[in-house]
Design a protein around this nucleic acid. Sequence first.
DNA 1: ACGAAGACTGAACACGTGATTAGTCTATTG
DNA 2: CAATAGACTAATCACGTGTTCAGTCTTCGT
Lengths: 212, 212
Amino acid sequence: MSSVDPNDLTAAAKIRNVAIRHFVQEGFQKANLRAIAAEAGVSIGLIFHHFKNKAGLRAACDDHVLRVGQDRMGNGMRDLLADYLSDPDEYRLQVRYIARAIHEDSPSARTFVDTMVEQSEALFAEGVADGSIRPSADARARAVLHILISLAVLTMPPPLARALGHEDFGPEVLRRLTAPTYELYTQGLYTDQNLPTAAEAAWAAEEDKDDA
Amino acid sequence: MSSVDPNDLTAAAKIRNVAIRHFVQEGFQKANLRAIAAEAGVSIGLIFHHFKNKAGLRAACDDHVLRVGQDRMGNGMRDLLADYLSDPDEYRLQVRYIARAIHEDSPSARTFVDTMVEQSEALFAEGVADGSIRPSADARARAVLHILISLAVLTMPPPLARALGHEDFGPEVLRRLTAPTYELYTQGLYTDQNLPTAAEAAWAAEEDKDDA
DNA sequence: ACGAAGACTGAACACGTGATTAGTCTATTG
DNA sequence: CAATAGACTAATCACGTGTTCAGTCTTCGT
């Protein structure tokens, strides 16, 4: 659906697709319009003809990627991870683009994030209703945390992947994370009775603050 | 220790500190050397005199921030979050700088990440030994996952903070995340018996792959 | 006091790159 | 068959910005 034969695409679409890849790989600033034009097989001027300026091109890319992403979520987003796993090579680029847009607080990213959180919260609510998921004291915050974690895993930086023995992130790394994620999501990290050492102390200390 | 009176700093240190802020707020590419020089109260030429070129300045910043971070970890890192909470305004900048360096795979970031993972794994091992933390099938992967999550929380993008009703990330948002994090780390997400719906199915599907 | 080394300045340079513009080609319409 | 519009090109401009350089000022050792 997304990587059709490049021949039957309009020039504008070709430019957009190439630009998306460049924006992800080099960042918006560093991305070079001449290089994009060359790779898309068009002249530089055409970019401006279609998109007005570099920011316009970016807006078009944001719009396209986020719209596609939102559509995919629309007909039954169960989980970002699940989606990703269905075809890693296909979605890796788009996921990274989305993550980048979110971190840079692009306008199109706002509604996208809202939708994700909304859906995630609804999904959890379902689970709670049928007893498969534990209830939470703050359902909204839990949804946010879950999105945050999913995004983090899917955009794992190279040094962390390397700490797992792989050159960079990919299906193998993801599979390696299966066990700890599974454990965390089913049993948690700490044992039942005592909530000790590190994080807990910090959280507690933080909570003391608004008593003062 | 870090924000002393700007007057008694050497010019090179002043430049470095200003540069760190600019690199975080605008990114390395967009950061303007003239603006940095002006804000540091020196001429543009001096930057090149001390740091050779822009890349040199960046290397110096990387080195400084990561060294400071590593020192802090050295004398008893318990938890990234705990550290952060001790003085959010002070560390916010540095944490974001580190996260950026890690994502861009800067050379100095590699050893830093390794140290973090190492320490985290050791910490978990302690906990497992004294019974406060559950054992894991893959201790290394769990440590990586934990670092990943900590980093993600501390560099939470604005749209997600907004989904929690705040303008951007800060101590309040962090406190809001306390409950779900606490729940996740003590009980997990799913109830005991069945591991249903979303993520689980995906993880399972993924595992099937290497049977084929 | 003198000389050298290094801190420091400000103007000028070089060049990459986003943007403009004049003009050509293609195709649709009346 | 004009004629109009839009896709498209290639040369050119404009300018921000990293970098260099010649020269001045400060400091310090002898």
